[in-house]
Design a protein around this nucleic acid. Structure first.
Lengths: 297, 297
DNA sequence: CTTTGCGCTTCTCTAAATGCAGCGCTCTCT
DNA sequence: AGAGAGCGCTGCATTTAGAGAAGCGCAAAG
């Protein structure tokens, strides 16, 4: 869109950290870009970049402005989607960031279900830890985020929120697999595989272990739940996961047992959007469907 | 702001109902304006105006767009105010629509109080009935609305809400002035002055009278509460007003007596803003102060 | 049946934005 | 210490996007 051109250039400069680099990215000369920025700052009434010897950086005013720019261009997208919607075409793109646990079973089935009704809608799914997911919302890179244990709830609107207990994952004939409910200390007696600290489930584990005035001594710290699933089949090890990330009852090689909520508090799974933002139709509808599905869990 | 030029022109056309008129308003030629609109429609991907023989009118897509334009330019204003704010200057303009009852005593004192701390902030106060006030919010013409009996609460964020009983207003030695609390039917036995149906207090009166399966037979229907105050001194007539619009205890010629809540439900006074909107700093602070003041009533 | 007011088009021109080359500066690396 | 690289910024020639003037066709109003 032509009228956003200058704003997009500003964003590109903020991104690139230098006018010349951004100019190259946007296929114009640095002098033209430079003067557009100066012109904008003049009519805006305040500089928005700090000039550094090696380039430029947004100053606080610029930070405020860039936020406006992102909100604004994403809102224009929303309007266009809505216009397309009222001319009968159901299309659009839903972008969502989610925790790793959501990815293998839950999200694919929900997306498939949605696309059965709205085949024109495309999706962009990113797996992010809770901090990164929130950053995506803030940047308007994602419309939605479905994450465990979000941090800065005040900055976002919570569309839906449920809790899920932590499950232990182990080989089917592991000694602990006989019990219905496990104690955390029993699990920790075996080698255990935990995700890095940025992940929600690790946060809960650290909290719980802290309360027991023990320390977590992870045999293996691994990002990938897929890795964990396979590893526990070898070493009599214990892994941890939320039930939404498990195909309970469908895996004949692994056993999934809930941990006692006395030991470890259940994880809070929240569907978030940027505070006060009006989502594009497609995203809003998908959020709605997700909220219903979560309520049924 | 240059980059909004086209958008503002579109708004002007929507306003004027014709390209030529709008062109005159904006001091350009109609041909230039015409081409800008066509250019915009082309890159937007859909027409936004219906072409009529006597001019143009927004189509549904245009309605959506104009909403975006208003939100967008008011948000840019907010950013600029915030930038000014962080360079230490407290300035800005607070625009508020309010019911008539708010205007004589409450609003002036609250504005004076606010301006004692922030002398750089200016105000724009419009008296509007509840429908018109809501329209002002929707158009982003007002940041805030303080009205009795708002209608479409779902479209707005309610910052604060209180109730106030309806008072009868009469001459000091009116027969009814002796009682502490009045019944509605007693008041209606005298000539009465009521505002037109668009006003909140009239709405409550109509409701109450409807429940009594009587009909309102207003001696005088008058917009102005000022007129009402003076009229009741002549004709042994009864007027109606909320206490926030009365200088109770300071008027030696009039008596103010509450109506029984059994007869007429108290008025709901709500401080509203457009849903999901981030207000400029000055307006947000003033809203905060108003909310506190309302809580103390 | 003329008149009026409208959106839209064509042509010409001007003012604003662009590209090019180069300046002065700071930091880095030899 | 000196050369070089990378940066923001500026003067000047050039391009281009946008503005104005005039006029066409059309439909409702008088």
């Amino acid at each position: 869109m032509k009228h956003l051109q200058t704003l997009l250039l500003i964003e590109a400069v903020a991104q690139a950290g230098s006018i010349r680099k951004a100019a190259e990215d946007m296929n114009i000369t640095s002098s033209a870009l430079n003067r557009r920025i100066q012109g904008f700052e003049a009519e805006f009434g305040a500089p928005i970049f700090e000039r550094l010897p090696r380039g430029v950086r947004l100053n606080p005013a610029g930070e405020l402005l860039i936020q406006h720019i992102r909100a604004q261009s994403s809102d224009l997208e929303r309007v266009r989607a809505q216009v397309a919607d009222l001319s009968g075409i159901r299309r659009g793109r839903v972008s969502i960031s989610c925790s790793q646990a959501i990815q293998p079973y839950f999200m694919p089935s929900k997306i498939a279900e949605y696309r059965r009704e709205h085949p024109g809608v495309t999706f962009s799914v990113n797996v992010r830890d809770r901090d990164a997911a929130e950053m995506e919302l803030r940047n308007y890179n994602s419309d939605l985020a479905l994450v465990f244990e979000p941090r800065h709830l005040a900055e976002f609107d919570v569309i839906m929120s449920i809790t899920q207990p932590v499950y232990a994952v182990m080989e089917r004939n592991h000694p602990l697999a006989a019990k219905d409910e496990l104690r955390l200390r029993d699990c920790l007696a075996y080698p255990h595989v935990v995700p890095p600290p940025a992940i929600g489930i690790r946060y809960l584990l650290d909290l719980a272990v802290g309360r027991m005035s023990q320390k977590l001594a992870p045999t293996i710290e691994a990002e990938s739940f897929e890795f964990m699933r396979h590893y526990v089949q070898n070493d009599q090890a214990i892994g941890f996961q939320f039930p939404i990330g498990l195909n309970i009852g469908l895996d004949d090689r692994l056993a999934f047992k809930p941990l006692s909520v006395r030991d470890i508090s259940p994880g809070n799974l929240s569907l978030l959007q940027m505070k006060g933002r009006t989502l594009p139709v497609a995203s809003a509808r998908f959020a709605n469907q997700l909220a219903l599905a979560l309520a049924d869990l």
